[in-house]
């Protein structure tokens, strides 16, 4: 049996103070992601996707419940511990790339390693290696402004992977890409997941991107609505996803 890399138990996130109008963004959410899994989180806007990602990625604190990542309970860690934990165990890919535009692609990718105090001798082979995996070796010396959106997202992915985190958290990584680049990025992520055992948690509202995942959790109004697992080929899975989304829409409109 494989170990679980993310373990979320009864997590609640409430916005607003007690005296004010409170809003439950997450209500009793529980799920696990196993090592080497590629899990998607879907749901209509406002369902709590981003809140869930923020809570799992330690950028925000859950109001109650327990979250374990790579066997460590992050719910009662201090700010500094959390920062170290992020730089150690998590890899981020954001919709708007979030590359530092004043650093070259190489320096951007090297940054997580530098932060961990890896010596510069060891940094270079690691960066080259991950850049090769993502097919961006030729643009390492360039600045982010001079490369395309697809290349930027690959650079961001390289940065997320270079320190071999326990899990990569991707927040709408294809959101700012055209369909060709989006497809190619998702292919790459699928490849990384299948051949390099990278665990990925992907938040998206795009059914096509989601169809690359192995399993999808749907959330609706802060609760887990449904969970589907890929059984057939990608085409079928895509159709399955569309069906669930249609279900969700009909619930919402009724």
């Amino acid at each position: 049996m494989t170990k679980s890399v993310v373990n979320v138990e009864n997590v609640q996130k409430i916005f607003g103070k007690k005296s004010e109008n409170q809003y439950k963004a997450l209500d009793n959410v529980s799920f696990t992601i196993k090592e080497g899994e590629f899990v998607g989180i879907m749901g209509p806007s406002g369902a709590g996707k981003t809140t869930l990602l923020n809570v799992v990625s330690t950028l925000d604190k859950a109001t109650s419940g327990k979250i374990e990542i790579a066997g460590q309970d992050i719910t009662d860690m201090k700010q500094n511990q959390l920062a170290d934990f992020r730089s150690d165990q998590l890899g981020f890919i954001f919709q708007d790339f979030n590359l530092l535009e004043n650093l070259t692609v190489y320096e951007n990718i090297a940054l997580p390693l530098s932060l961990q105090g890896v010596s510069s001798k060891k940094i270079k082979p690691l960066v080259t290696q991950v850049a090769e995996k993502l097919g961006i070796k030729s643009i390492l010396a360039k600045y982010p402004v001079t490369i395309s959106g697809g290349q930027k997202q690959r650079a961001a992915a390289a940065r997320a992977l270079v320190h071999e985190p326990a899990i990569v958290l991707a927040d709408e990584p294809t959101g700012a890409l055209d369909s060709k680049n989006a497809h190619s990025l998702m292919k790459t992520m699928e490849h990384l997941n299948q051949y390099h055992d990278v665990s990925i948690m992907l938040v998206t509202h795009d059914p096509l991107s989601a169809s690359y995942c192995e399993r999808i959790l749907f959330i609706q109004d802060g609760t887990l609505y449904k969970e589907i697992t890929k059984s057939g080929d990608q085409q079928q899975f895509h159709q399955q996803i569309l069906n669930v989304l249609a279900e969700l829409t009909s619930i919402q409109s009724s």
Binding site: Q79, N80, A83, R86, N98, P112
Partner: peptide, 10 residues
């Protein structure tokens, strides 16, 4: 962004 990828405030 630096905070997100885990740079300590200090």
């Amino acid at each position: 962004m630096l905070r997100k990828i885990g740079v300590r405030q200090a």
